[in-house]
């Protein structure tokens, strides 16, 4: 477990260092993700070491957003004061984005002539 955490931290650190040094407009962990994906493709044995811990973290990804979520209290007055434009824009725009993104995805794949997908599901 500690080894797996070390691997994740090393790649995050590498990502942070490179984005900072090169002043790239993306967060260190996102570059860390890319570097780690390349490493996993290059050395497949690495996946065995980290798989359990990585999946454990990702299964509980919701937990990690809780502290930031509680942070909403800091500006509660702003949200209450301009609730209509905030809620209106967030709900409508998020709904629009969800549907348009998914429809584009499915539509373009259909245009490419690939219809039967093994990842097809029906519920949830």
């Amino acid at each position: 477990m500690i080894e797996a955490l070390l691997v994740l931290l090393v790649f995050q650190l590498a990502g942070e260092a490179i984005t900072h040094a090169a002043a790239l407009p993306l967060p260190g962990p996102v570059l860390g993700l890319v570097l780690f994906a390349i490493a996993l493709k290059t050395w497949p044995a690495l996946a065995k070491k980290v798989s359990t811990v990585a999946h454990g973290i990702l299964r509980n990804l919701s937990l990690l957003f809780v502290p930031a979520g509680v942070g909403v209290v800091q500006h509660a007055d702003l949200v209450v004061h301009q609730w209509l434009p905030i809620l209106g824009a967030l709900v409508v725009s998020t709904a629009l984005t969800l549907v348009i993104t998914a429809l584009t995805f499915v539509g373009v794949r259909r245009l490419m002539g690939e219809r039967n997908d093994p990842g097809e599901g029906s519920a949830a």
Binding site: F11, G15, P29, L33, V50, V53, I57, L61, L64
Partner: peptide, 8 residues
Amino acid sequence: PATVALAV
């Protein structure tokens, strides 16, 4: 670390 773990 969770973001990095998405690579798996």
